[in-house]
């Protein structure tokens, strides 16, 4: 099954990636080659096999909900690309 240019554009949109036409062609083609290679995963019979999401099978690790020291506030603010006073400045969220 081939990945079309439209497929590649749709995926880029889902992934919030602005790509040039050239990049769409390049990654679309490479994606197709990698997916063809991954086609070999159809060979083994996996019908009776459960999926593995985690090598050690740890589930639902709980902890006490206690107040803790957070990282230094000033250091977090200093990383903001756009800042006004102590606020993070972004484009309008609700149109």
């Amino acid at each position: 099954m081939a990945v079309t240019e439209n497929d590649a554009k749709h995926i880029a949109k889902l992934a919030r990636l602005e790509l040039t036409e050239q990049e769409i062609k390049l990654y679309g083609g490479q994606l197709d080659a990698i997916l063809q290679y991954a086609g070999q995963l159809d060979e083994p019979d996996t019908a009776p096999v459960p999926p593995t999401a985690h090598a050690l099978g740890i589930e639902n690790v709980m902890r006490e909900d206690l107040p803790r020291q957070s990282p230094a506030r000033g250091a977090i603010l200093a990383n903001f690309p756009h800042r006004e006073f102590d606020l993070l400045k972004v484009r309008k969220v609700i149109e």
Partner: peptide, 27 residues
Amino acid sequence: SLGEVFCKTRGEGFGPEVKRRIMLGTY
């Protein structure tokens, strides 16, 4: 717009291999 900031930042900020894998994973 906010959406444009996301897409442009990621388009400019990530290199080819990262974009390729994000595309593969998203697919």
